[in-house]
Simulated scan of single mutants.
Amino acid sequence: MLSDTPAELLQLTFRADLDLLVGRWTHQPEPALLPAAYQQLTHAALAHNCRYWLQDIRRRIVNDPAITRWLLAEYFPDMARRLAGLRVAYLTSPALLAHIMADPTFKPVEYYDSQPYQIHFFGDEGAAVAWLKEGQATRTTQKRNG
């Protein structure tokens, strides 16, 4: 059985070569562990000043609705402010993606165009990384032209 500590729940790796923070969730968490795991994520993101995150949640089965509301209303906007932007690619299993998209509050990727953060869901890690890299390239182009 897996340990129920935040460090075992969420394995974080900063990929300096890609300027990505990769978080791999090892199992379906108890909701009580999520705040500490997100604190761990916050610390790593700020330590590396990394606004591009790949979150591998394929081992999770469901999302906690209260945590999802908190992420969208508070956590992501706060992290986007602190990092001057945020782009999160979620790598999901087909079953979890279907569960997420069936939620009546689910927003399509276009919704996030007007938000200080962007979120997208993927079933393929290569596509997720490509989307994150696309965001980096767009940001670089905007800086040069701005």
Score class of each variant (00 low, 15 high):
residue 1 M to D: 07
residue 3 S to M: 15
residue 3 S to V: 13
residue 4 D to P: 00
residue 5 T to L: 14
residue 5 T to E: 09
residue 6 P to C: 10
residue 9 L to K: 06
residue 10 L to C: 08
residue 12 L to M: 01
residue 12 L to K: 02
residue 14 F to E: 14
residue 15 R to F: 00
residue 15 R to T: 00
residue 15 R to N: 01
residue 17 D to E: 02
residue 18 L to C: 03
residue 18 L to M: 08
residue 18 L to T: 01
residue 19 D to V: 14
residue 19 D to N: 13
residue 20 L to A: 02
residue 21 L to V: 01
residue 21 L to Y: 01
residue 22 V to R: 03
residue 23 G to N: 04
residue 24 R to C: 03
residue 25 W to V: 11
residue 26 T to D: 09
residue 27 H to N: 05
residue 29 P to R: 10
residue 31 P to I: 14
residue 31 P to Y: 09
residue 33 L to V: 05
residue 34 L to S: 02
residue 35 P to K: 15
residue 36 A to I: 12
residue 37 A to P: 01
residue 37 A to G: 03
residue 38 Y to D: 14
residue 38 Y to R: 14
residue 39 Q to C: 14
residue 43 H to W: 12
residue 44 A to T: 15
residue 45 A to F: 05
residue 45 A to N: 08
residue 45 A to T: 10
residue 46 L to C: 09
residue 46 L to K: 08
residue 46 L to V: 04
residue 49 N to L: 12
residue 49 N to I: 14
residue 49 N to E: 10
residue 50 C to A: 08
residue 50 C to R: 06
residue 50 C to H: 06
residue 52 Y to M: 07
residue 53 W to E: 04
residue 54 L to Q: 00
residue 57 I to G: 04
residue 62 V to I: 03
residue 62 V to L: 02
residue 63 N to Q: 15
residue 64 D to I: 11
residue 67 I to G: 04
residue 68 T to Q: 01
residue 69 R to M: 15
residue 71 L to N: 12
residue 71 L to V: 09
residue 72 L to Y: 06
residue 72 L to G: 05
residue 73 A to L: 09
residue 75 Y to K: 13
residue 76 F to G: 03
residue 76 F to Q: 09
residue 76 F to V: 03
residue 77 P to L: 13
residue 80 A to M: 00
residue 82 R to A: 04
residue 82 R to H: 02
residue 84 A to H: 12
residue 85 G to V: 06
residue 86 L to R: 05
residue 87 R to T: 10
residue 88 V to I: 15
residue 88 V to K: 14
residue 88 V to L: 11
residue 89 A to R: 04
residue 89 A to E: 01
residue 90 Y to D: 05
residue 90 Y to C: 13
residue 91 L to M: 01
residue 92 T to V: 12
residue 92 T to H: 09
residue 94 P to Q: 10
residue 95 A to K: 14
residue 97 L to K: 14
residue 98 A to E: 14
residue 98 A to R: 11
residue 98 A to L: 12
residue 100 I to G: 05
residue 101 M to Q: 14
residue 101 M to W: 04
residue 103 D to I: 13
residue 103 D to R: 10
residue 104 P to S: 07
residue 104 P to W: 05
residue 105 T to Q: 11
residue 105 T to C: 06
residue 107 K to F: 10
residue 108 P to C: 15
residue 108 P to D: 15
residue 109 V to D: 06
residue 110 E to Q: 11
residue 112 Y to G: 10
residue 112 Y to T: 10
residue 114 S to L: 02
residue 114 S to M: 04
residue 115 Q to H: 12
residue 115 Q to G: 10
residue 119 I to S: 07
residue 121 F to M: 02
residue 121 F to A: 08
residue 124 D to I: 00
residue 124 D to E: 00
residue 124 D to K: 00
residue 125 E to P: 00
residue 125 E to Y: 00
residue 126 G to L: 12
residue 126 G to P: 06
residue 127 A to C: 05
residue 128 A to Q: 04
residue 128 A to L: 06
residue 129 V to G: 00
residue 130 A to E: 05
residue 130 A to V: 02
residue 131 W to S: 06
residue 131 W to H: 01
residue 131 W to M: 01
residue 132 L to S: 07
residue 132 L to M: 08
residue 133 K to F: 07
residue 136 Q to G: 02
residue 137 A to F: 03
residue 138 T to Q: 07
residue 139 R to D: 09
residue 140 T to C: 02
residue 140 T to I: 11
residue 140 T to F: 06
residue 141 T to H: 13
residue 144 R to A: 15
residue 144 R to W: 13
residue 145 N to F: 09
residue 145 N to A: 12
residue 146 G to L: 09
